[in-house]
Design a protein around this nucleic acid. Structure first.
Length: 874
RNA sequence: GGGCGUUUAGCUCAGCGGUAGAGCAUCUCGUUUACACCGAGAGGGUCGGGGGUUCGAACCCCUCAACGCCCA
């Protein structure tokens, strides 16, 4: 028996274990059409936050829905090694436990520590995904650092190198002095900072005066290689081609003209420090004849290097800045200091100021790979939903820069490149191959660096399927159908999967990219640990059940918007689950059980024919919602069917049919239809609320699992317009009578007699056929039209007259009728006005004109009846 | 500076060319044997401002404003 109390904790984990152990997440369906999703692999360091909960709920809805459709649904799962993040976590842990640090223990020992840590803590997030109900293919779980992935990464690296699409280059990178590694453009965040603008003077070589420059970074003066002015700037035209003397360093540097210089910034002359500024580096490249030196001023930790004058060596950037300013001031060459607000680059992981830094790094020619990735979205091989994200994708892809893929870390895929004694590089998938290239006996040293984490996650859609082996899985599940992810990693990840997928598989990695928004708190603030406004999805699951959280996230997922998560919504959907639980309990108490067939039993009762039509309409709406990725519409349609149709009306309307002494055949039919309907509800709700529905599915009958059941036979279901009209009429009548009763203050419990005026034979028949339901729900029964005050309820062409004798509140009834009349007359007149407009009748669509005529006639008649009722009141 | 998005009931959001919707919240009533995590009923919106197109605009176009995000 279904328990009186709905308690999600009682069955959620039990069902999950059953599904996983029975292989339900990946049923053997070799003949079915595959449906494939690859999970955005969560960081192995991480734990489930609410953003994961959203992302994975949506994926699970899609996977479960397609599984119910009979598809060979497969949700490929795994975790990401997350280079910097994981290395930081483990280093922090070593520090906290007073163990030797990374550099003290050495590379091999440190790597072993990370693997140890992964074995202990790496399962946290995958356990939490199970708690959420994610029906992933755990049997083939992957990790971006496992051996197969390493093979794939090496192969990709080597092939790109051979094709000239990957190369080693010395250029400026975004250098993180805390982590002592290069990072990519995307890992830099610009913050607006209140800084200063220092104005200095450099003496001209010929002693004829000075040239004034302004800078936000005085410490880099030590590396200046030129002063630049705009070619059209009259003030400086005569100085171009001359030289000035760099104070403190005492070096002669040229004055050059370059259109990059903004004449209205500062003095209109800027210093050029080619090794510490991206713009300056570009100037350096444009002026090879000027002989601008590239002076790397700093050590990897951003202290001043031996390339600086002796007094500066070893100072931090900040100390060197103060020192330079003081030295200029002492020389009388400091003009002024102005407050200046500007953008400063920070490392998104370390939070320290990024230093443009000249080093040797490996780069991928992203511009070349982007070509097909752009074309694939332009020609629709991959589409974005919502489509607006295409613009973001295009915009970035069209302006893509070389991708720096090497990282000075220890945790990650080590770069498969070896160097000979002369520095010659040998790129190969294995050391043996590199040795073969170099020649036997040549001593080789492997590149110390590892690859950017996104280099391996770019291979996720095919690396997970066994590539470079040409596996059956790869043939069957690549390309995937849908990628579900947050818009914030379109650049980081989606774009790179597109590039690598197209390049190495010749096909896009997925047909559709569904981008959802961010989950924010109830005030619309971005959630962050530092603000302390994060919500823990596990806590919410414990409080309300996983189903309620899933339903909430699904219902709130409207395309193109962030989600403002309010706990009251979760509570509301927990109530919804309780409502269905109780409805099923009621059904069971009345001998209603699961139905053995996909198709509904034959039905003669209008209420039964009606609910079958409602199921058909709902299923159709749900199918459309999935096709359009309208998760909110999915939740809305099933919520409405369950609560506003099935519970509010169907169950109430069938109570008389199931009562003692009711017609046995009608009762049997009703039990069968009710059972069938409940089954369809469970199937349709299952993708969103898998636990509750599976539990009830088994409570209602002995049978196989719902997770592997079949979707509603939508097309085969009858839609009975006549039954639908009957029941809509009945619902309308009951609602109007209830409303009227309340407005004239008739106690809800009072059972009243009624008579009817102006009814057609059809209406009289409907009143008779539904007498029991009307008595139960409107609390009126046919009777004599006694004298005295009457309540008049106009419904369609008929007026229901309910004599109330002296009890009636005449004033209230008069007010009620007047209000109804006013509303009706207003609509009538608006329609009349429209119909009187020749522009409308001539130009509008004929259907619109016909509808207006019909509505106008109906409103006119209704107004007359209300008028008559008012007249009778006197 | 460039681009994108948002602005509809107290709150969160649907609707995107033919009479303004949902959930929550509010108010009134109610323990009729599934459910008070409930039932019945009610109130509440000149759809950000202005202009235009159209027989007709929350919906299309232009413009302004506010807020948010991304890129430089």
């Amino acid at each position: 028996m279904i328990d009186r109390i709905f308690d999600p904790e009682a069955f959620e984990q039990r069902w999950y274990q059953h599904w996983e152990q029975s292989g339900a997440f990946r049923p053997q369906r070799p003949d079915a059409q595959p449906f494939t999703i690859v999970i955005p692999p969560p960081n192995v360091t991480g734990s489930l936050h609410i953003g994961h909960a959203l992302d994975n709920t949506l994926q699970d809805v899609l996977i479960r829905w397609h599984r119910l459709q009979g598809r060979d649904a497969r949700w490929i799962v795994g975790t990401d090694h997350a280079g910097i993040a994981t290395q930081m976590v483990v280093e922090r842990q070593l520090a906290e436990t007073q163990q030797p640090g990374r550099t003290a223990m050495g590379r091999d020992a440190f790597e072993a520590k990370v693997w140890e840590w992964k074995a202990e803590s790496g399962g946290t997030i995958t356990r939490q995904l199970r708690r959420l109900g994610a029906s992933c293919d755990w049997q083939n779980e992957r990790f971006t650092m496992d051996a197969g992935f390493n093979t794939a990464v090496n192969k990709v690296f080597v092939e790109l190198f051979r094709q000239g699409l990957l190369y080693r280059d010395k250029r400026l990178v975004n250098w993180d002095p805390k982590l002592k590694t290069a990072i990519s453009d995307l890992e830099v965040e610009y913050r607006e900072v209140d800084g200063k603008l220092w104005h200095f003077r450099y003496p001209l070589e010929d002693g004829s005066g000075f040239i004034a420059i302004a800078t936000t970074r005085p410490e880099t003066i030590l590396g200046d290689g030129a002063v630049a002015v705009h070619p059209d700037d009259e003030r400086y035209r005569r100085l171009v081609g001359k030289r000035c003397r760099l104070p403190v360093v005492d070096r002669l540097i040229p004055i050059i003209a370059d259109p990059m210089v903004e004449s209205d910034f500062g003095s209109g002359a800027v210093k050029i420090t080619a090794a510490h500024d991206f713009n300056d580096f570009a100037v350096y490249q444009r002026h090879p004849q000027a002989g601008i030196p590239l002076i790397n001023l700093m050590n990897p930790d951003a202290t001043m290097a031996d390339t600086c004058p002796p007094d500066y060596r070893g100072l931090t950037r900040e100390a060197a800045r103060a020192s330079v300013v003081a030295d200029f001031e002492a020389l009388g060459l400091l003009d002024k200091i102005e407050p200046h607000r500007h953008q400063v680059p920070y490392g998104d992981r370390s939070g320290v100021v990024i230093e443009p830094y000249l080093t040797d790094q490996w780069y991928v020619n992203a511009g070349e790979l982007a070509k097909d990735a752009l074309a694939a979205v332009h020609d629709g091989r991959t589409r974005f939903v919502p489509a607006t994200w295409e613009k973001t994708y295009f915009n970035w892809m069209e302006n893509i820069q070389p991708w720096c893929v090497s990282r000075q870390l220890w945790w990650g895929h080590r770069i498969p490149a070896w160097y000979g004694p002369d520095g010659k590089v040998f790129v190969a998938e294995t050391e043996a191959e590199a040795q073969a290239q170099a020649g036997a006996g040549v001593p080789l040293t492997r590149d110390e660096d590892v690859l950017d984490t996104w280099f391996s996650s770019a291979l996720w859609p095919f690396g997970t399927l066994g590539w470079p082996e040409q596996t059956a899985d790869l043939a069957r599940h690549y390309p995937g159908d849908v990628l579900v992810t947050g818009f914030d990693i379109i650049f980081f990840w989606v774009a790179r999967m597109m590039m690598q997928g197209l390049h190495f598989q010749g096909e896009v990695p997925f047909r559709t990219v569904y981008c959802h928004g961010l989950v924010r708190d109830a005030q619309g603030q971005k959630m962050s640990k530092s603000k302390g406004n994060t919500v823990d999805p596990l806590g919410l699951i414990e409080k309300y059940g996983a189903d309620a959280l899933r339903f909430t996230l699904t219902a709130m997922e409207t395309q193109g918007r962030d989600i403002k998560l309010n706990e009251s919504r979760i509570e509301g959907y927990r109530n919804f689950a309780t409502k269905l639980w109780n409805a099923a309990r009621f059904a069971q108490m009345n001998g209603i059980a699961g139905h053995p067939d996909l198709l509904p039993p034959a039905a003669s009762q209008p209420v039964n024919r009606w609910i079958i039509g409602e199921v058909k309409a709902c299923a159709t709406a749900l199918e459309q919602a999935i096709a359009q990725f309208r998760f909110d519409a999915y939740a809305d349609a099933i919520y409405r069917l369950v609560w506003s149709r099935f519970c509010d009306w169907y169950l109430e309307l069938i109570k008389p049919l199931l009562a003692d002494g009711a017609d046995a055949a009608a009762a049997a039919e009703t039990r069968a239809v009710a059972g069938w309907t409940l089954d369809q509800i469970l199937v349709m709700l299952h993708p969103v609320m898998p636990f509750l529905t599976e539990e009830l599915w088994h409570q209602l009958a002995e049978r196989g699992d719902l997770i592997l059941a079949r979707w509603v036979a939508t097309d085969a279901l009858p839609a009975d317009a006549e039954a639908s009209a009957d029941i809509d009429w009945l619902i309308g009548l009951i609602s109007e009578v209830r409303s009227a009763r309340t407005e004239v203050n008739v106690p809800p419990s009072a059972k009243l007699a009624y008579a009817v005026d102006g009814a057609t034979p059809e209406t009289l028949a409907r009143l008779a056929a539904n007498a029991a339901a009307i008595e139960r729900l409107a609390r009126i029964v046919p009777g004599e039209l006694a004298a005295g005050g009457r309540l008049a309820v106009v419904h369609g062409e008929a007026t229901i007259l309910i004599p109330l004798g002296d009890v009636i509140d005449l004033a209230a009834e008069k007010a009620r009728l007047e209000k109804a009349l006013a509303a009706c007359a207003k609509e009538r007149d608006a329609l009349a006005g429209r119909l009187a407009n020749p522009g409308f009748t001539e130009k509008a669509k004929p259907e619109a004109v016909d509808k207006a005529r019909e509505d106008h006639a109906a409103r006119t008649a209704e107004a007359e009846r209300l008028q008559a009722a008012l007249a009778r009141l006197g």
